[in-house]
Write a protein that binds this DNA or RNA. Structure first.
Lengths: 173, 173
DNA sequence: TTCCCTGTGCAACACTATAACATGCGAGTG
DNA sequence: CACTCGCATGTTATAGTGTTGCACAGGGAA
């Protein structure tokens, strides 16, 4: 089985501070290695995105940025997002016009996303079987694949079958 | 092989009038059967979308509608699009914010789209193997799939390997 | 007739993203 | 030190995408 889970669904009580710290540390390291600058704005936007495991919209980021930095404007956010996308630190969810942190920024890939319609949590896969099947089918029509947008909607394990005492309805932690 | 091609890539010299006529006739029939109304506006929007095998943007439709009907406004177009989407007569391409005619509206399905980055032609698949693989992978994480957005970018056969004398660079016919 | 339902007209607005040009600021160089 | 080059950010405006809310028109049913 070639299933590679980049970011699984998290339990409601997982230590989310850890997720954020890891993601930021990894980003710092990677940017240093590549000789690109993770400026305060870019770092803060990444941190805001990692506040939860749900996709975040650009103008929500802008609102939160503005609360801290009077000068924040749409370009402020979109430039930071462009940088983070470029460096593979976040992904864009096309069907939501929203952005989410990447759990495995070091190696370049396109994500395959499982999006919970109820709590909005997102898990990320990078699955070779999926790539293979799609490339094969495309190949049958003579089509040469260069990139893929794969976004699956449905119910995450917690919302599908909530255990007693388990919180649902939020992906904020 | 369970590959089902809903709409293949068309040769540049195919009889496109036929595509349009077929699509409209099928839409008329289907709407009559279901007891819903394919009004002149809705029919015209569908026809404009079927003008080519490339996705069309809402405001391009609006421009063309306005040339014929002074009163056309954004809601005019979006209401027609909502209706056509609802009836399965068109699909929305999330990664392009654009709409394309469905070649098989009779049976409900989500499409899998191959999008040519050069000529913008789009082919539509409805492939069970792809569904199966994705559902299986999702299932491994306890995720229950309800719908899928699958949009593959790359090069169509004609743009990938243009034969001498074969026109490329347009999906308008 | 009156009522109701659906479709359309119309104005305004909300949300998403980019363009264009100005300013700041730090690193490297002479 | 001054200089300048390149990148990041500030600022204003605008483009592109989609929705809300209410008014009106027409046809079928009571």
């Amino acid at each position: 089985m070639a299933t590679s889970v980049v970011t699984p669904f998290k339990h409601a009580d997982h230590d989310h501070g850890h997720c954020v710290d890891d993601a930021l540390a990894q980003a710092e390291r990677q940017c240093r290695q590549r000789g690109v600058r993770l400026t305060p704005i870019r770092r803060r936007v990444l941190e805001l995105i990692w506040n939860g495991h749900a996709p975040v919209k650009a103008y929500d980021l802008l609102d939160r940025l503005r609360a801290e930095r009077r000068s924040a404007a749409p370009p402020t956010v979109y430039r930071a997002l462009d940088f983070l996308l470029e460096e593979g630190l976040i992904h864009r969810i096309e069907s939501l016009n929203a952005y989410i942190g990447c759990g495995s920024p070091a190696h370049p890939h396109v994500g395959q996303f499982l999006i919970c319609e109820q709590c909005h949590a997102v898990a990320e896969l990078d699955d070779n079987d999926v790539h293979r099947v799609l490339s094969a089918k495309a190949g049958e029509l003579g089509f040469l694949v260069s990139s893929q947008t794969i976004e699956i909607n449905g119910l995450c394990p917690l919302c599908r079958d909530p255990s007693p005492g388990t919180a649902t309805g939020s992906a904020s932690g």
